[in-house]
Design a protein around this nucleic acid. Structure first.
Lengths: 205, 205
DNA sequence: AAGAAGATTGAATCGTAATTCAGAAATAAT
DNA sequence: ATTATTTCTGAATTACGATTCAATCTTCTT
């Protein structure tokens, strides 16, 4: 039993992620099974405790989310462009995003479930570090003139992303991907004293 | 049946709020009954559909939260003080805050439950209006020099509060009430070009 | 204080989901 | 191809929560 092959494991994690995005952290075993196209017994065969599967699924989402952001800026030299691209990669395009939907559910569960609190806090801190290193580099190259400590700016940037993510997932009528990015950029401009001219990366490429 | 007296109604709403704070929006009827010190039948007698009770409980929390913020600044003239006090009133003191715990749970459920999305979006917008009117007044009196449209600043302020609320509720090891308020104030200073000297309202009075 | 209306209980019932497991199906090994 | 191993199903069992309701307790009315 246990330790399913990499392939099957991924299939289960995918199913658990979709099920959690749809039903929250109180998702039922049957709902995960449905999503996987299997019966509940099959899930239990690999994960005798559903919670373990949910936590693994959650860790995978968190990891993927972070990795995608790192990938979005790899190869880019200019700190201003790096900052803009990072902001863009932190906001969900619409309220269909499965990963962000799941992360929202985690946020709601974190006050009640330590494990989710730890995972989310860790994701937050890693994103803060990502921003901080961009800010520090830009500052060192005299591209940015930081108006607050880099840690503070980084925390505020990640916080803004998070909050606008929630707004977008809740379907706010006048807050779209574009306006959220623009709002965060407005803060970034104040905090870095850089114009950060935003040429949406979504219209070309 | 139905339409319980104001007193009993409040007792039920309180119980539902506590239960939701503890168990999320997927709270069980029995858990609400336990919190109320009643049996499930008694709850059903007043609210044949649990969802109705949960929504009413949610609306009450949202209302109370907003009203408290309004009350926190009533009588204060100076726009800078009003702004500071408003920021202070938007951040939970610690991760025990039942109201904010509930609001977090709502945020997690909003992508899946329209009714909660509507309630939360409405709360967000009302808070934005609150900030906006403070900013506009301060601007009109030449106390603030707004570096972005007041709507944008207001949205960012509420967003920061929200996000730090989540962090605090998740027990972030280095983000406390005080540091969150300071981080939001740092943005507010940049956006208003006002020093906003923060004399914590918690140490006196 | 008697009676009526309102509120609550506790037991019975129903429904749904979790769990178990013998055996079938698929896959891998020889 | 045969055997062994892994994976999965479907049915049976068990557990739990929702729902119903007759009986009881409370509270109000007069």
């Amino acid at each position: 039993m246990s330790s399913p092959s990499k392939e099957r494991r991924d299939r289960l994690l995918l199913a658990a992620q979709r099920a959690m995005a749809e039903h929250g952290t109180a998702v039922r075993l049957n709902q995960v099974a449905d999503e996987a196209g299997l019966t509940s017994g099959a899930i239990l065969y690999h994960y005798p405790d559903l919670q373990d599967l949910l936590v693994d699924a959650t860790r995978a989402v968190s990891e993927r989310f972070y990795e995608e952001r790192v990938r979005a800026i790899e190869g880019i030299e200019d700190p201003a462009t790096r900052l803009i691209r990072t902001i863009e990669s932190g906001v969900p395009l619409d309220n269909e995003d499965v990963g962000v939907k799941l992360l929202c559910a985690l946020g709601g569960a974190a006050p009640r479930h330590t494990i989710y609190a730890i995972l989310l806090t860790s994701l937050y801190d890693r994103q803060v570090s990502l921003y901080q290193s961009i800010l520090e580099t830009g500052s060192a190259l005299s591209v940015f003139t930081l108006k607050s400590p880099s840690l503070d700016i980084a925390r505020n940037l990640v916080s803004l992303e998070d909050a606008y993510g929630y707004r977008i997932m809740a379907g706010h009528p006048t807050l779209s991907y574009g306006s959220a990015v623009e709002l965060i950029l407005e803060y970034a401009r104040l905090a870095t004293a850089h114009k950060l001219i935003y040429k949406s990366s979504k219209e070309k490429s």
